[in-house]
Amino acid sequence: MSKSDSNLVTTKWASYKFETEPIRKGFGRGLKKAGEANEHVVAGCADLTDSTQMSLFKEAFPDRFIEIGVAEQNLVTVGSGLAAMGKIPFVSSYAAFSPGRNWEQIRTTICLNDQPVKIVGSHAGVSVGPDGATHQMLEDIALMRVLPNMVVVVPGDSIEAEKATLALAKDSRPAYLRLAREATPIITTESSPFVIGKAYVYREGTDLTIIATGTMTYQAMVAAEKLAGDNISAEVIHVPTIKPLDAVTLLASARKTGKVLTVEEAQIAGGLGGAVAELLSEQAPTKMLRIGMKDRFGESGKPEELLEHFGLTAKHIALQAYALIS
């Protein structure tokens, strides 16, 4: 059963017919709304305005949109300059290029310089599909998570992405917002909670805790329902903010169940799994397994066949859960 205060779209995860929408669409709507609410919100893009869904903002506020061209180093450093003069810049590209290519500029001119630039990396994860490994960004969570001052947000669906965008526009810190390309099941509702830095228990359980982020939260919820059919009680926690990590919520659950499974569409080294392992090993050593990309790159294919191949589906999550509790 889903926890009622999460106000999720359903309680029946295996049978419900989910509507789907790319997570980036929610970002596009959120950015336009943020622009309407605050005239200092501005946007810059590296030649991917439609793809990253900045086009809504561009149409509404052409004088506050800057087309940077295919130049990701310039993208974030121009953002740093805009922020220095009181603007709230959102700068977008594909995650493979930003923050993939421009990490040092982000470190020096945004994090150390402490300017509230919002870096939006779209098309993250293997579910990018046929474009192949070059465009399937898997290391971005790790890259951004190690930077002092940086906030890292990975929404679970388009509705949450919209809320996250609006929240980041009001937040005074540098931030990385990670978005996926493919249509993703909409699992939350307008009344589901989202606060930067909070993790949410979407389903209560006692046998193990599944901690998921981004597109994988839906898969984790479906897996938990399968497990319930075998009398295994899985708690599912959705972690839309990877930094700062909601230690209170995660520690309480880990202490309750004593077994933790993390799930992410990213490298397990340094990503959500890494972050949870760091927390638990110091404060509540817990038996743990990490699901994600295991020190390898993706490849071309249909999104669903890639997720299946790399073990990023509800079925695989359930199998790992059995392994963890046996």
């Binding site: 501005v42 450093t77 300059g81 805009l82 922020a83 220095a84 003069m85 603007k87 500029q105 001119t109």
Partner: peptide, 14 residues
């Protein structure tokens, strides 16, 4: 290599 980009951002904001 970063200063001119930051200058451009500042100039755009101004």
């Amino acid at each position: 290599g970063c200063g001119l980009s930051q200058a451009a951002g500042m100039a755009l904001a101004m």
